[in-house]
């Protein structure tokens, strides 16, 4: 194990832990409802999840040639449909991945 790799991992890992842990100690429950900070924090969750979805899907839509529209449509459609029926994030996620891989397999075997 090279010392430089280990040092880099330890320094960055320690900062990651600090970024994740110390903000949980902030006492924010006495903030008045409707204040700018309250609205900022309330919006951060949906904004973060929306951002992460777009960032993770962006590479998939950059190249919409070949089977990409079919597989993407099948995956997204399956997540929407299964979530509407089951209200389960776990089941909807698995259904989306299965539909995405299945559509890719169908396209590959039929072409």
């Amino acid at each position: 194990m090279r010392l430089e790799i280990l040092s880099l991992a330890v320094i960055v890992g320690a900062c990651n832990w600090a970024f994740r842990y110390f903000p949980t100690r902030a006492n924010l429950h006495e903030l008045p409802p409707g204040s700018p900070v309250t609205r900022f924090l309330a919006a951060t969750g949906p904004a973060a999840i929306g951002t992460l979805f777009v960032a993770s899907a962006l590479p998939l839509v950059k190249d919409l040639s070949g089977p990409a529209p079919l597989t993407l449509g099948a995956g997204v459609g399956a997540v929407l449909l299964v979530y509407a029926i089951s209200r389960s994030v776990v089941i909807a996620t698995l259904a989306g991945a299965i539909a995405y891989g299945g559509a890719f397999w169908l396209f590959a075997t039929s072409s």
Partner: peptide, 18 residues
């Protein structure tokens, strides 16, 4: 390919939930 869609599917399902 299916596993590669797991994270976008997870974030989409989470987005629907909130």
């Amino acid at each position: 390919t299916g596993l590669g869609f797991m994270l976008p599917a997870l974030f989409l399902a989470l987005l629907l939930s909130v």
